[in-house]
Design a protein around this nucleic acid. Structure first.
Lengths: 220, 220
DNA sequence: ATAAAATGTGACCTGCCAGTCACATGACCA
DNA sequence: TGGTCATGTGACTGGCAGGTCACATTTTAT
């Protein structure tokens, strides 16, 4: 965690540093991020950086705390549109709100997804902690859904969690990488076309690729 | 492409260099791979390396050629177990053979999957070429499957390709990262447990997570 | 006003990187 | 044998990395 000198900083300066760090990690990932560039872009001296943080990982962990806090803040006043939602509807709603967050803070989302989901796979076991909460929450949701007869119980809970995470990550990666090319990412995410794409991905997660009599052309 | 001096090398020496490079890319990815370590591990001088290759990317591209060649060789005598296979059966069979290849050449698979699927996402558009062939082959397969009434046509072809690639990559990543922890990766891949895991993933790709009357407990 | 404590600074250290080059060694041919 | 051409070599360059430190500046307490 950052040293107390960092927390004593005026908000503006702190934010400038945090923003420079976010850009750096979004652009270069964790391993190739450069503290030299971070200090250059935040207008502080090299020595100051090491009075605020112990090292690169420290500033990254701080960023993840900031992301977590912003996310909670963002989700706070969001409520599902209806009562008694189906688990899949609820998951779809969650993903969509998540994508709203990602497009509201695209560099943050890019930095987090890149390092945690992508580089994290090959790092020595770090970052596992960040997944734990998500996984537990998903597992609880899925168990309940199986009890409700919504999720196929022949697919075990662990696998269902893995699948939902895979899709969540795939969609996030798609939104973040494609979205960065748009001039107005939020508008692009909210566009009918992008929303339909997300819907279709989740539809396939729910019903699979195979054509079956019962569902054919029921949805699209 | 490598210079002619490299091709003139005795096979043994060439293989030693290729193996050192594979290990390096598997361990560190493309960006962080070090030519210094490669030369150290292959027992050649720094200067020699640059008489064989123009740079790091050159040696990587050569590796991908080697992988492609090995893969073709590996697949050459493999035939699907039955005639008139369902597309999904065929895809499952392909994935499983692919995983056999990955566990026969685990470092190769790790290097390729890491750089192409993982780092490739964030590199400036490089490596897109490597996907093209795969994507086209998949697209053709899917179009045919839609005609046969196997794949849900309301899921468009592009999305279906993306989904199959996502699953293929997810399974590869799983096999490669988990497999590297095993003492006998091939045995592990062939074990009933691992095979069932792959089957279940593909089952979900095919039928989705939702419980439906028609399929419940039909498979597992 | 003064002392003390906290914060700011950038030159500097060591280490690793990709890539070069003058030279050494060996192969081949006349 | 001597000459030439291909191959092998590792010390070296310049650049950037993470991290340190003696000193400068500012803030705070007295």
């Amino acid at each position: 965690m950052p040293k107390k000198t960092f927390h004593n900083l005026p908000t503006e300066k702190r934010e400038k540093i945090v923003n420079a760090a976010i850009d750096e990690f979004a652009e270069y990932g964790l391993e190739n991020a450069s503290t030299n560039r971070i200090v250059a872009n935040s207008g502080i001296a090299k020595g100051s950086f090491y009075q605020y943080f112990v090292d690169k990982l420290d500033v990254f962990n701080h960023l993840m705390d900031v992301v977590a806090r912003e996310k909670i803040e963002f989700f706070k006043d969001k409520r599902p549109p209806g009562r008694n939602m189906d688990t899949f509807e609820y998951f779809r709603w969650m993903i969509k709100i998540g994508m709203e967050f990602n497009s509201a803070y695209p560099r943050m989302a890019q930095a987090a997804s890149r390092v945690l989901f992508v580089e994290g796979l090959y790092y020595g076991k770090n970052f596992a902690g960040y997944h734990e909460q998500t996984k537990e929450a998903l597992a609880a949701m899925i168990k309940q859904a199986m009890k409700n007869g919504e999720v196929d119980p022949s697919v075990d809970v662990g696998l269902a969690v893995m699948i939902m995470e895979t899709w969540s990550n795939a969609i996030t990666t798609y939104i973040v990488t494609e979205g960065m090319k748009q001039k107005d990412i939020l508008k692009w995410v909210r566009s009918a076309k992008t929303q339909e794409k997300i819907d279709k991905m989740l539809y396939v997660m729910e019903y699979g690729l195979r054509k079956t009599e019962s569902k054919f052309e029921k949805h699209f």
